[in-house]
Design a protein around this nucleic acid. Sequence first.
RNA 1: GCCGCCAUCGUCUAACGGCUAGGACUUCGCCUUCUCAAGGCGGAAAUCGGAGUUCGAUUCUCCGUGGCGGUACCA
Length: 491
Amino acid sequence: MIRTRFAPSPTGYVHIGSLKMALTDYLLTKQKGGQFILRVEDTDQGRLVEGAVENLLRTLDWAGINPDEGVKFDANNKVVQVGDKGPYIQSERLDIYHKYIDELIEKGQAYYCFCSKERLDEVRKIQELNKQATGYDGHCRNINLEEAKKRIETGEKAVVRMKMPKEGATKFTDLIRGEVSFENKLIDDQVILKSDGFPTYHLAVVVDDHLMEITHVIRGEEWLSSTPKHIELYKMFGWQPPLFAHLPLLLNPDKSKLSKRQGDVAVEDYIKKGYLPEAVLNFVAFLGWNPGDEREIFSLEELVKEFSLEKVSKAGAVFNLEKLDWYNREYMKKMDNAELANRCSALFEEKYSVNSSQYSVDLAKIVGLEKERATTLVELVDNVKFVFEMGDYDKELLVWKKSTAEDAKNKLTELSDLLNTFSDQDWNKAILEKKIGEWIQEKGYGMGDVLWPMRVALSGQKNSPGPYEIADVLGKEECLLRIKLAITKIK
RNA sequence: GCCGCCAUCGUCUAACGGCUAGGACUUCGCCUUCUCAAGGCGGAAAUCGGAGUUCGAUUCUCCGUGGCGGUACCA
């Protein structure tokens, strides 16, 4: 039974890289029938953001990767904690951390440090000057415990540091990178308890992962070099460390770690822009992984079935928006019109005040008009604007190639007469196409001479879906109205 | 600076020592066509460098080089 956890800090938004980690956790656990746990890591009190947890859960829900245990929504979308290994919010676990920190202090594996920020800066500066590895110099490492306790009783501020061994090396096997080794003497005596009484990430993550019986720690490569500290803590406590997998980082186009400065990194940004969760997940999963053959389109279920850490590449991957766009277009094209309309319903309501429940059948048709032309849902809804409100278009547009305005007017008038003879039952794309096509042939007109002005009359746009599709969506009455309008425009 | 990780088309990647180095995105050309898309066909585009090991290296080893990450009382 495997247990994984997604353990973000509630900073207000979900980084797209975090989503990739959460997805990987999810895929692995679902594949092996384990539990996926959500833990909130809020040990940095200075970075708390109101409503961040709700937002986090909403985003995961959008993606369809909901936790089995830990912090989650209940049936009414209220944030609750589920599971017998809680609490799952670190700020509610302070007494637990203190207990374990005290244990290390008593065993002599951690110590109080009274060094000021100024002294630490000074030490670092000198080390840099001498081209040495930077790190804590162990100034307080050998202060006798009795004395340290006395100093604290008198009100002196202190932090607690772990006592890294000075000899040997810490080795561990990363599921993606294989064996990794660090020399102990170069590893810092990491602060594990801050002066505000909160533990640092390093201590909290080890204690929690152990107590919550996490089997696989999946996180970004930025954690690779602090892993030996964690391994050492496991050793100090006498615990079995979990398996580690450090995933390659998502990169900016300039290959630096994906950052806010160079574009959108929040999943919420992509939701807002109208990307489908299917596309985002598929895209993100394929950054640094592929099934080994040439398939590219994978549903979440298929990913669960086929994903494997062994096939994850070691190098970072540039977050390439163009490929994301392609995925989104693919999923939009493939998607059933009714479903697609459903995904757009909020946008329709917002943009055109169209009530989705009332118009759902029509919305499906409308969405079908532009789904092969749009990259995102937002773009799709924008593109069908002409269905709801005709723009004020240039009459020049009604003229096809070298035909004249007079030509266009005559063709539209004749077409209008023809369309008048259509019964409402006959008013659909296939019959319109057949009958109008035959009529054009009989008359010996050029296709474009009729279809171009017809299309522009119906859409008001230079570029648009085909005239038959638009006519089908608009209905007979509206079409005749628009054509009449176009004719009056010409003269 | 120090430590670690990494290295195939512009980008995402395939090729578990052996083929004209394959696919996708992007881009370009052609076909289709009332426009724009979509679709179909085709083109351009890569093994960081140098030594080894080997009959043979994209693949294994070493050294360079480059990129990235870490180096906080942030995660």
